[in-house]
Simulated scan of single mutants.
Amino acid sequence: MRTLVLRLNPGDDLRASLDAALEQTGTEAAFVVSGIGSLRGASIRFAGAETPARIEGDLEILTLAGSLSPDGSHLHISVSDAEGRVFGGHAAPGCIVRTTAEILVAELPGWRFAREHDPLTGYAELSPRRKS
């Protein structure tokens, strides 16, 4: 296992930045181990919802975790607002960094993650494969 430490800047889109980092390193399988920082708005798809909800305002990233693959990422996030309310779910495009985001990624060089349609769930689900 190798690690990648990222510091995202104000205005960066969280998902796009993680996808770009994966592409730049040529990594085919990775997990977000930890992520903290702040956002100036977030798009989060809540459990069972078809589309993301938009949360405006200054937000703190409490947790960020998920799998990263060339076929797409599966990220979960929890954030809190200025009143301490917590929101969580799938991190969608549109989670924009306010001051910083500090993210630790574990790369798995012996693996390739793919996303394949699963008829049981109806979604593109993780299909991990060892490299030969």
Rank of each mutant, 00 (worst) to 15 (best):
E50Y: 09
E102C: 06
E83F: 12
G37P: 07
V97L: 04
V97T: 06
E107L: 04
E107C: 12
E28Q: 10
A30W: 01
L6T: 00
S38G: 09
A124R: 11
A30F: 04
G84N: 03
N9C: 03
T51D: 12
L75K: 09
A49G: 03
D19I: 10
V79R: 07
R129E: 13
T99F: 11
I55E: 04
G84E: 06
G122Y: 06
V32E: 02
L108D: 07
G11P: 04
D81V: 01
R112Q: 14
S69D: 03
T100I: 13
S67H: 13
L64Q: 04
G48A: 06
E28M: 08
A49W: 10
I36E: 13
Q24M: 05
I36C: 05
C95F: 00
A29R: 03
I77L: 14
L8S: 07
L39T: 11
E23W: 09
F113C: 02
V79C: 05
R112W: 04
H117V: 12
F113M: 02
E116V: 14
D58P: 10
I103W: 00
I96Y: 11
L104I: 11
V79K: 08
L108R: 12
R129A: 15
D58W: 07
L108E: 09
A20H: 09
S73Y: 02
L120K: 15
S34T: 06
L18E: 04
G110H: 03
I55S: 11
F31C: 12
L4H: 11
V32C: 07
R85E: 14
D71K: 02
P10E: 13
S132I: 04
V86M: 10
F31P: 06
H74R: 14
A42R: 03
T25A: 07
T100V: 10
G48S: 08
D118L: 07
E102W: 04
R112S: 11
L62W: 00
P70E: 07
S69F: 09
G57H: 01
T3A: 05
D12K: 01
R130I: 08
A106W: 02
Q24H: 08
E23C: 02
A65L: 01
G41R: 12
L104W: 02
T121Y: 07
Q24W: 05
L22C: 01
I103Q: 10
P10C: 04
A47W: 05
L126T: 13
